[in-house]
Lab assay of single mutants.
Amino acid sequence: RYRTTFTSYQLEELERAFQKTHYPDVFTREELAMRLDLTEARVQVWFQNRRAKWRK
């Protein structure tokens, strides 16, 4: 599977959502995914990776 490349707008929005909550529920993820034209799975994985980065 190829690596997803996020646009700067998508990253800004994902980071903004991350500032609000590190653990968005499925509705929040679905809403973000639709708004950013991504799949909910991509959003979920982004948050997993972002939390890992945050913990370091």
Rank of each mutant, 00 (worst) to 15 (best):
T7Q: 05
E15S: 04
D25G: 09
E30S: 10
F6T: 06
E13G: 07
N49C: 10
T7D: 04
V45G: 09
E15K: 02
S8W: 03
R51Y: 07
R42P: 06
M34I: 09
Y23C: 07
A41L: 08
R55K: 09
E15T: 03
A17C: 09
V26T: 10
F47R: 00
V26D: 10
E40L: 06
T5L: 07
R3G: 03
Q10D: 04
K56D: 07
P24I: 05
A33L: 01
M34P: 03
N49L: 06
E31Q: 10
E40M: 15
E13W: 04
T39E: 14
L14G: 00
K56W: 01
D25Q: 03
F6E: 14
K56G: 13
L14V: 01
V45H: 07
Q48K: 15
V43L: 10
R50C: 03
E31V: 09
E30G: 11
V45Y: 13
M34F: 03
R51L: 12
M34G: 15
L36N: 04
R50H: 05
K53N: 08
E13Y: 02
V45N: 12
V26C: 07
L11A: 08
V43A: 02
R35K: 13
L14K: 00
W54G: 11
A41W: 06
R35L: 07
L38M: 11
F27Y: 03
Y23P: 01
R35E: 05
T28C: 11
R51N: 11
W46C: 00
L11T: 14
E15C: 01
D37Y: 10
T7M: 03
V26I: 10
R51W: 09
V45D: 14
K56F: 08
Y2M: 12
Q48L: 09
Y2I: 14
V43N: 01
R1P: 06
R50L: 00
E15P: 02
R50S: 06
P24F: 05
D37I: 04
E30D: 12
A52M: 12
R42F: 11
R51Q: 13
E15Y: 01
E12L: 05
K56R: 06
R42Q: 10
D37V: 10
L36V: 08
M34N: 04
V43W: 00
T21E: 13
M34K: 15
P24W: 02
A33Q: 09
Y23T: 15
A41P: 13
L38P: 02
R42I: 14
T4R: 03
W46P: 00
E12Q: 05
Y23I: 07
Q44V: 12
D25E: 05
E15N: 06
R3I: 15
F18Y: 03
T5N: 11
R1M: 10
V45A: 06
M34T: 10
D37G: 12
H22W: 07
D25T: 07
Y23R: 11
E12H: 06
R42C: 12
Q10S: 03
S8L: 06
F27N: 05
Q48E: 15
E12W: 05
L32C: 02
L38D: 03
F47N: 00
A52T: 11
T5R: 03
L14P: 00
R42W: 12
A33C: 15
L32V: 05
P24H: 02
R50F: 02
L36A: 03
R3V: 08
R35G: 06
A33E: 01
A17Q: 11
L38V: 08
F6H: 05
Y23W: 05
K20A: 05
Y2K: 09
H22C: 06
H22L: 11
A17R: 03
A17D: 02
W46N: 01
T4Q: 04
P24M: 04
E15H: 02
R29H: 08
F18A: 02
R29Q: 09
E31K: 11
S8T: 11
V45M: 10
A52I: 09
T28D: 04
L32Q: 00
E12R: 03
L32H: 00
L14N: 03
S8H: 15
E12T: 11
N49D: 14
R51V: 07
E31F: 08
F6Q: 07
P24T: 02
E12F: 06
F18S: 03
D37A: 11
D25Y: 04
T39F: 03
N49G: 10
R35D: 04
M34V: 11
H22V: 08
A17H: 07
Y9K: 14
R42M: 10
F18K: 00
Y2Q: 13
R29M: 15
P24G: 00
K53L: 11
R16P: 00
W54C: 11
F47Y: 05
W54A: 13
R42G: 13
L32A: 02
Y9A: 12
L38A: 10
R50W: 02
L32P: 01
Q19H: 07
E30N: 15
T4K: 03
A52H: 08
R29Y: 11
S8K: 08
T7I: 02
T7G: 05
R29W: 03
L36K: 01
N49K: 06
Y2G: 15
L14H: 01
Q19N: 08
L14S: 00
Y9P: 08
R29V: 14
E30W: 12
E30F: 07
A33S: 09
Y2R: 06
T5H: 08
F18G: 01
L38C: 07
L38E: 05
K20G: 10
R55N: 13
F18N: 01
V26F: 14
R50G: 00
F18C: 01
R3F: 14
E40S: 12
R3S: 15
W46E: 01
L38F: 01
R29C: 07
E13L: 08
W54D: 15
F6R: 02
R50I: 01
A33D: 00
E31S: 14
K20M: 12
K56Q: 06
V43G: 00
K56T: 04
D37T: 14
D37H: 15
R35N: 12
S8C: 05
L11Q: 14
T28R: 09
L11W: 07
Y23G: 02
W46M: 02
